[in-house]
Design a binder for these strands. Structure first.
Length: 210
DNA sequence: CGACCGATCGTCT
DNA sequence: GACGATCGGTCGA
């Protein structure tokens, strides 16, 4: 079980990193409560040149400040007023690349995750989608900017064998014009915690060799 | 199935 | 004052 360090995050290829994060173990320990999940779906957001990115064209606001930090910290923001989305900041400072964690398979602390998601029994939607993933792992806005190799958040390589990874265009970024069609979404095909979406079955969902 | 719609609030203009 | 890198429910074919 290897903790991923800044050498992993600070590389200059956010799309590659988004793909490599599939199958990794994401562990949170907030207020002494440990929960973890295996990453099964991600999306890359390529800094200043990507029309879908919050940092497109060098846009810099209070919200997206963390995207401009050195890779290896969290970027967390509220979406639609009710969902807490967790992103992995990559690349070096002033290059605002990030990877959105869109799906996790619940691992440790299932009971806690059930509580957070207000379910009494295990349910497939726990960890399905970026909003549900953030909720299950206990992320809040005040966790923005935390190191990803610290005592509260950690991403690990436990040598889990990922059989297959597919790619597709990203979800919910139709406003991004031509960039909406970039194949920057990665997921384990058919996985229970992967967003149910037409893109999964689309002929455009290309299979990648693992 | 797919299309549509309401919830709900931090953030930006 | 408008708008989301969403979600879960409903409605109709």
């Amino acid at each position: 079980m290897q903790l991923l360090h800044r050498e992993f995050y600070q590389r200059n290829n956010v799309v590659q990193i988004a793909q490599e994060l599939i199958g990794k173990l994401l562990i949170t320990k907030f207020d002494g409560v440990i929960t973890s999940g295996r990453i099964v779906e991600t999306e890359a957001y390529a800094g200043k040149t990507d029309k879908a990115s919050h940092a497109y064209n060098g846009r810099r606001t209070n919200r997206n400040t963390m995207m401009y930090y050195d890779g290896g910290v969290s970027y967390i923001y509220i979406c639609y007023g009710m969902h807490t989305l967790f992103n992995v900041v990559t690349n070096t400072s002033d290059v605002p690349d990030a990877v959105l964690i869109r799906g996790i398979e619940p691992m440790d602390g299932l009971t806690i995750m059930l509580e957070r998601c207000k379910k009494s029994t295990p349910h497939p939607t726990i960890g399905r989608g970026p909003g549900n993933s953030g909720k299950a792992l206990g992320f809040h806005l005040y966790h923005n900017g935390l190191p990803l190799s610290g005592k509260e958040i950690g991403i690990y390589d436990d040598a889990f064998p990922v059989k297959s990874i597919h790619s597709s265009k990203r979800i919910g970024v139709d406003y991004a014009g031509d960039d909406a069609n970039l194949p920057y979404r990665f997921f384990i095909p058919g996985h229970l915690q992967v967003t149910q979406h037409a893109n999964n079955k689309s002929a455009k969902a290309a299979a990648l060799t693992v």
